[in-house]
Amino acid sequence: MSAAPAAVFFALAALASFVVRDAFLLDSLILILLWGSAAAAWNVAGGYAGQISLGHSAFFGLGAYGAAVLGTRWDLSAWIGLAVGAVVATAAGLVLGFLSNRLRGPYFVLATIAFSQVLLIVASRLRAFTAGSEGIPVPFRPGFWTLGLADKRVWVWIVLVVAVLAYLLQRYLDVSRRGYQLAAVREDEDAALSLGVAARRLKVAAIAVSAALTAVTGALWAQYVGFVDPFYVFSVDLSVRFALASIIGGLGTALGPFLGAVLVTTVETYLRAQFGGIGAGLVGIYLVVYGTALIVMVRFAPQGLVGWLRRS
């Protein structure tokens, strides 16, 4: 696929930072780009390498905690927290990658869920280090070095850079030698091996890179939102959101996760606003909508939004 639609997409986002003044719209844009990047990171493992994970919140949480813990305990820069989170997540990704060489299909999916839930338990019990289940408020320290930015337009630019990098990473997998080899591993690991592809190493590398990028989005999210709650950042809900945006947008396509994120984030924001008030009985309705959307997509546009757009 040509890169033109993506260029338009990212250019519009950049343009919006100059034109749009409305805080709510800017907030939506930042979240779309952030969730899009997280979905793109998921897509590297789930779409390109074919390793469907429902535990990617583990990496998101490690990134979020990296930034929050280092910032509050040692007063370190948010960027250092982000880097540390990414390194720790890479190590965790290597562990998960190792599991992917032992477990296939549903067994791998279950292992990924367990993986994120173990981290949830650790984070919520290690009170001395992570403040336990109360979560960590991330202090607002003004300045770029500490990522204390009141101007949402600057945030748009920061997440846009991450989004473009995530997009380019996927494009690399579309056209490069490693990308072809990874596609072969996804389609049939034994056949890939028989053709000289170092399948295991490639798969582990893809999962590790995916983990690192997810952690980066987690760290940025923590700084942007200002609070890290273990039950949110390590939740299965969040993992499902990454997978869902990627699948709805187009599994294994570079722009897909971003299109999926537009849809998922918009719908969720709308439904929360409509039905989410205190005492409302339909708080969880967005889950029903997600489920329905997934069924509809799988039935009518199995290649996702990107595949559907390409055909029409």
Partner: peptide, 14 residues
């Protein structure tokens, strides 16, 4: 065991 989702050319390129 073809790589079903890849083109013929893509298969051979691997």
């Amino acid at each position: 065991r073809p790589f079903a989702g890849l083109t013929v050319l893509g298969n051979v390129m691997v």
